Amino acid sequence: MTSSPPNVLLVRADRWKPSNPLLENVIRKYIDEAEREACDRTGNSGTIIGGGLVLVGFGIVLAMGTGNPLAAIFAVIVLALAGLAWMGVTAPPLRVDPLRILAPMGGPGNLPAGYLVHPLAWRAGMPEFLRGVPERRLRIAVDLCRRHPGAVTDLLKMVERSERWVAEWQPGRDFSPAGRDAEVVIFANRLIEHQLRNVPVG
Rank of each mutant, 00 (worst) to 15 (best):
I101W: 05
P92W: 07
A82T: 08
Y30N: 12
P134V: 09
L81K: 11
W16M: 12
Y30G: 08
A82Q: 12
A85M: 11
G51L: 10
G67M: 01
N25E: 12
I31E: 09
L22W: 12
R28D: 10
M64T: 11
M87S: 09
R137T: 12
N110C: 12
V26K: 12
L81M: 12
G52E: 01
G107W: 02
G67R: 11
R123Q: 15
G106D: 00
V26M: 08
G43W: 05
P108E: 04
L116M: 04
I48K: 13
I101T: 05
V26T: 13
P69K: 06
G43T: 11
N25M: 14
A75E: 10
G65V: 06
A13E: 15
P134Q: 05
P69D: 02
P127H: 04
E24H: 09
V26S: 10
L70A: 14
E135G: 10
G107M: 03
D14W: 01
I48W: 14
D97L: 03
G109D: 00
P134N: 09
R137C: 13
I101Q: 01
A121Q: 04
I60T: 11
G114M: 02
P98W: 05
M105S: 06
I48F: 11
P134L: 08
A103P: 05
K17Y: 00
E135V: 10
F129Y: 10
R36D: 15
W16R: 07
N68M: 12
N44G: 13
V133K: 15
L99I: 02
A63D: 14
M105L: 09
F129A: 13
I73R: 05
L55E: 09
I31T: 01
R100V: 14
L79Y: 03
G109Y: 01
G43L: 06
A124C: 00
G57Y: 00
A82S: 06
A124I: 00
L81D: 11
R95M: 12
E135R: 13
S45H: 14
K29M: 10
M126S: 01
G67E: 00
R95I: 09
F74R: 05
A63M: 03
I48M: 15
M126L: 05
V54P: 11
D97R: 06
I49Q: 15
R137P: 09
L62Q: 11
A113V: 02
F129S: 08
A13W: 13
P21S: 09
I77F: 04
I101G: 03
G59H: 06
N68F: 13
R36W: 11
A80R: 08
T66A: 08
N68R: 05
D14H: 06
E37T: 11
V61W: 14
G114L: 00
E135L: 10
G59C: 04
A38G: 02
K29C: 06
G59N: 02
A34I: 07
L130F: 01
Y30A: 07
I101S: 03
I73N: 07
M126A: 06
V117E: 03
D97A: 05
R41M: 14
